[in-house]
Amino acid sequence: MKNNKPTILVVNDDGIDAPGIKVLMDTMKDLGKVVVVAPDGPQSGTGHAITIAKPLRLDRVHIYPDIEMYKCSGTPVDCVKLAVNQVFKGKKPDLCVSGINHGLNHSINILYSGTMSAAMEGAIEGIPSIGFSYDDFTYDADFSKCVPFIRAIANQVLEHGLPAATLLNVNFPKTGAARGIKICRQANAKYAEEFDERLDPHQRNYYWLTGVFQSGDKGEDTDVWALDNDYVSVVPVQFDLTAHHAIPILNSWQFDVKA
Rank of each mutant, 00 (worst) to 15 (best):
H106P: 00
A141M: 07
C146Q: 00
N155T: 04
K145F: 07
T138V: 06
D142W: 06
H102T: 10
E121H: 14
S129H: 06
C79H: 14
F137W: 08
C146P: 05
A83Q: 11
A154Y: 02
K89M: 12
S133G: 03
H160D: 12
V84E: 12
A165V: 06
C96L: 15
V97K: 04
H160A: 10
C96V: 14
F137L: 14
P148R: 00
A152Q: 13
F143M: 03
A118C: 04
G161E: 03
P128C: 09
S113W: 05
P163S: 11
F88Y: 15
F143V: 13
D94P: 01
A118L: 03
A141Y: 10
C79E: 14
S129I: 03
Y112P: 02
L162M: 02
C79N: 13
D78M: 11
P128F: 02
L158I: 05
A123P: 07
V157K: 04
P128K: 00
V157E: 08
N105W: 03
I127C: 05
I124W: 09
C146S: 10
I110H: 14
C96H: 00
D78F: 11
M120I: 10
D94M: 04
F137D: 10
P163N: 04
K89T: 06
I127Y: 09
D135I: 08
S133K: 01
N109M: 09
Y112K: 12
L162Y: 01
E121S: 14
H102G: 09
T115H: 05
A83Y: 08
A123H: 12
M116V: 07
A152G: 02
V84S: 12
C79T: 14
G131V: 11
L162F: 08
H102K: 14
Y112W: 00
I100G: 11
P163H: 06
A141V: 10
G103D: 00
H106D: 12
D136C: 10
Q86C: 13
C96D: 04
L104K: 09
T138A: 10
D94F: 07
A119K: 13
G99R: 05
H160V: 01
C79S: 15
E159W: 04
Y139P: 06
I153R: 05
H102A: 15
F88Q: 09
Q86M: 10
D142S: 01
M116Y: 15
F143Q: 09
P148Y: 04
D94K: 01
D140S: 12
F137A: 13
S113A: 08
D94C: 06
G161Q: 04
I153L: 08
D136G: 02
